[in-house]
Design a binder for these strands. Structure first.
Lengths: 230, 230
DNA sequence: TCTTGTTAGATTGTCGACAATCTGCTTGTC
DNA sequence: GACAAGCAGATTGTCGACAATCTAACAAGA
């Protein structure tokens, strides 16, 4: 018998599609932090009733990128410098754990997938697609979590990813600068292929460090002159 | 002007109450792992329409104690030995981080709260209320997370807590043994009050270790003869 | 006997309408 | 002019009914 190996059927509920649409809108900055989500307006735009929309919003609230106040509304989360700092220090520890756990499990499939994702980042960079660049970079980074063989660790990373993507997108959006041409992930990939685990951990920490420092500086600047959301 | 210091108004939506009810039912084992939640039946029992019930379920799905399959139903998550093991090793690392961050922030209020929660555990133990004992023990343990001053860390702990409570409740429920009389938290509290951070971290790890080992043994036993959920 | 097609029942997903609540403005009073 | 009460509009929360989908039982054919 031939091995079929089908992938799961796509979620065919409106709710799932709404979740995807909303998440994308938030993570790309189409919906600004603090902005209120008007249920009636959105449901009309999407040609959907409020029921599945509200369920979708409830999911995103639990996912941590929306916040809800009864009888007042649902809003995109505000981003403070402390939020970013908290995510940063938490991520550092998680990364060490993920690398430690994934390390002995690295195999050819791991290296292939690593190259594939690295290539995706480079492609997005060449295409000057900043949104996709952030997305692919996070996916590259997420590989060690997928390989660490720990469901809780992976789940936590995925939750954090949403917010990280939002933070970086905000940053990019604000600076509106062209994407750096040099490949900042070259060393990271090389170390993950190497034999020195501690070195990989150290680099992951320091590499993250740089990205976050910029983010933090940006966020701190924002808090001097707080702007109203939409 | 007198300092008011009011606590937040209770959530007055049905949805919030349904979430609380369902969560409690799951965490105390009233709803067994794998069991399906029939929307019509539950909504009739609670005298509520399906809309807020479904929204509540969506939240609990994101919280990780329910799982949903489109057009098939929503189920209480199954508990495998690996799930417990994953939670365990993740918790170890998180604990070290929490203690490290909370350590320099300990003050009189911290110590008071520590004693208060410790007292709550002892009281539940005396009352032979196993459910409450698990709950209070987790709250005692959660203090370091609340004090660590990191929103992401705290949030992650709270998410994990739900599942931990479920695991331990299942265990207790299965053994149906009287609660241990000796106070296993005495040392933990004493070390958190002391001056040796590494010792506190070490104890936290080893103390957790014992509880988890039992849990794991139980879960592994379960997997030899898997039982259908209701 | 095994497989395939059909059908009835139950359950989930979605919709449109109504009720409860909030917000801002107007009005009246001092 | 300041302030409280009350009203109108908009928005969220909830409800009951309908549509889409799944499951299991049954029948028909090879």
């Amino acid at each position: 018998m031939a091995k079929a190996d089908f992938s799961p059927i796509a979620d065919t509920t409106r709710r799932a599609e709404i979740v995807a649409l909303l998440r994308r809108a938030i993570l790309t900055g189409q919906l600004a932090p603090g902005q209120k989500l008007n249920e009636l307006r959105i449901s009309e735009q999407m040609r959907v009733s409020r029921a599945p929309l509200r369920e979708a919003m409830r999911e995103l609230v639990q996912e941590g990128i929306l916040t809800s106040i009864p009888y007042a509304g649902t809003f995109v989360i505000e981003v403070t410098a402390k939020d970013i700092d908290d995510a940063y220090s938490f991520n550092k520890v998680m990364d060490e754990l993920a690398i430690e756990r994934a390390w002995p499990l690295r195999d050819q499939r791991f290296f292939d997938e690593l190259d594939r994702r690295h290539e995706a980042v480079k492609q997005a960079t060449r295409a000057l697609d900043t949104t996709r660049q952030i997305e692919t970079a996070l996916q590259l980074h997420g590989l060690i979590y997928e390989w660490a063989d720990n469901s809780v660790l992976l789940e936590t990373w995925q939750r954090l990813t949403s917010r990280l993507q939002m933070y970086f997108a905000l940053h990019q959006h604000a600076r509106n600068e062209p994407v750096p041409a040099e490949d900042v992930h070259e060393t990271y990939v090389r170390l993950l292929k190497g034999k020195d685990m501690r070195a990989a951990q150290r680099h992951a920490r320091e590499h993250i460090n740089l990205d976050f420092e910029e983010l933090l500086a940006y966020a701190r600047g924002l808090e001097q002159r707080p702007s109203r959301g939409a």
